[in-house]
Computed example of a mutant assay.
Amino acid sequence: MCSQRKISNVQALEIDLTDDSGIRPKSTFDYMGRQAGGGQNLGYTRVDFKNYLRNKRQRDLAYGEAGSVLKYFEDQSCSNPSFTYSIQLDANEQMTNIFWADHRMQINYTLFGDVVTFDTTFSTNKEDRPFGVFSGFNHHRGLVVFGAALLYDETAESFKWLFQAFLQAHSQKMPITMFTDQDAAMVKAIPQVFPSTWYGLCCWYIMQNGITHLGNMMNDRSTFLKDFKTCMFHCEKELDFEMA
């Protein structure tokens, strides 16, 4: 029963130590379950464990890093009035999602924002927050950045808020084409915020899907891989692609 579940002080200390050491939450929960002779003997569930970590990270952010982030944004806004940022708060007034774009990002998007790539990376910071980057290419095929974000999670609501903040920072200009991964929450959010934008998958994710489903047919010595790359990169028209 919910009223009987509790993380003890000793268990909390052990969770804090493993989290600070960079051990993944799933591995920590499984390890503690084996120590107790089974997860049912821990006295709390996996959901309780995740909630404890979430509250811990929110407290850490509120007491230290939140102030540092806001100070940085304020300094940037004072030195450059074009700098823009958005922060989403949860029901407990804790910072969750953060987006920012400086003047160079805004200029780049004005000039080269017809095609945008958006991707998130996991576990690159100690809070395990997804870090998202909006990027594209300039006229020299050099990489340019249009905006960046630290997210609390990868839900459709978080992505919807982020995409709206992105549009607000760039005068509501929508990209013509957007490439992302095949995250289900992202796929749900994109048409709600970018209804006129064509959405496609990055080549890297298509190749990863090929490796997952086709195995050895996708190795460098495979004639199939050569044909597959020809279809992807050398067929400009849909009919040519279907024929190939």
Score class of each variant (00 low, 15 high):
I98H: 07
F99I: 06
F99V: 13
A101T: 05
A101Q: 06
D102R: 03
D102M: 05
H103Q: 10
R104T: 14
M105G: 11
M105P: 04
I107W: 12
N108P: 04
T110W: 10
T110A: 14
L111Y: 11
F112W: 10
F112H: 14
D114W: 00
D114V: 08
D114L: 12
V115W: 03
V115G: 07
T117D: 04
F118T: 14
T121W: 10
F122L: 11
F122W: 11
E127M: 13
P130H: 00
G132E: 02
G132T: 14
N138Q: 03
G142I: 02
L143C: 15
V144M: 02
F146Y: 15
G147M: 03
L151V: 04
D153L: 00
D153Q: 02
D153F: 07
T155C: 00
A156C: 10
E157N: 11
S158Y: 01
F159N: 01
F159Y: 15
K160T: 15
K160G: 04
K160S: 04
L162W: 05
F163M: 15
Q164D: 09
A165G: 07
F166V: 03
Q168T: 14
H170V: 06
S171P: 02
P175E: 01
I176M: 09
M178P: 03
T180S: 15
D181Y: 09
Q182Y: 12
Q182C: 08
D183W: 13
K188C: 10
A189M: 08
I190D: 05
I190K: 00
P191T: 09
V193H: 08
F194K: 02
P195K: 06
S196K: 15
Y199P: 01
G200M: 10
L201A: 10
L201P: 05
C203Q: 11
C203Y: 14
Y205Q: 14
I206R: 00
I211N: 06
T212Q: 15
T212C: 12
L214E: 03
N216A: 10
M217H: 12
M218C: 01
D220M: 10
D220N: 14
S222Y: 09
T223L: 12
F224D: 08
K229L: 14
K229A: 02
K229D: 01
T230D: 13
H234C: 13
K237F: 14
